[in-house]
Amino acid sequence: MNPFKERKNILDAIGKITRLTFSTDEKAADVMKTCPGCGEKYGTGELAAAKYVCPSCGQYISMTAYERVSQIADEGSFREFNKARTGYDPIDFPGYEKKIQKMRKDTGLKEAVVTGSCTIGGEKAVLCVMDKRFMMASMGTAVGEKVFLAFEYAVKKKLPIVIFTASGGARMQEGIMALMQMARTSAAAARHDEAGLLYIAVMTDPTTGGVTASFASLADITIAEKGALIGFAGQRVIEQTIGEELPEGFQRADFQLEKGFVDMVAGRPELKDTIARILFIHGRRRH
């Protein structure tokens, strides 16, 4: 990439984070969020300080990718990769271009994942965060490409990678090309693994379908965010198949812990420390 453009991207990214971390009251007033649990309204600054856990009822309030980045990455350390990278419309799906344009306008994102490098508790790492506001963070060619490139960067720089997964699965509108992203990202994760590097997956609500059945399930250490829905098949489909209702808590974080598919369930406030500790231990191993 052109170094000036890259510098500009970096500055943009830093600017974005800084704005989010220290949003003034005036800015925060623009983006009030309502707690889905108790209906209480909060400004972004207030919520960031509370780590996006509702101060009055304890409900987790959904975060944008950049909000998550600002919670996890050390202040000002995040350098975004491929910010302008977009996918394409491989099967000429009717109405898809228009829908993507609308998504971009609504979210301010080009695609459903934000990738970059940063430090977490002082440890260098590649960080990817999926944003479910963008078409349920479904994986199409752009998401696949960005995750793939993030793994490749981590291999090249011998860095650990931390991925916050959230996805409705492969993006239907991109057909078979979206499905093939499962193979691409899995192969990239495998190569990172073979290079002896650490991969931490943090499964957030919801991590399902083709993302669960590819890179999200291939980490060395898997953390489930408290309460997250994690699974392959959708609950409606399963209920139709077996002809009965699923029990409460099915496919939730605690269920996955009980079944042995995640290493731990972590609450949102402890996530950063947990990740930093894992990175620290791996950074101190004998080579």
């Binding site: 392959f232 098949a233 099915f250 079944k259």
Partner: peptide
């Protein structure tokens, strides 16, 4: 897409 398939990690098995 069965209940037991999910309990035994359908997604993880396919990913592997």
């Amino acid at each position: 897409p069965g209940k037991e398939a999910e309990e035994r990690g359908q997604g993880q098995a396919i990913a592997e």
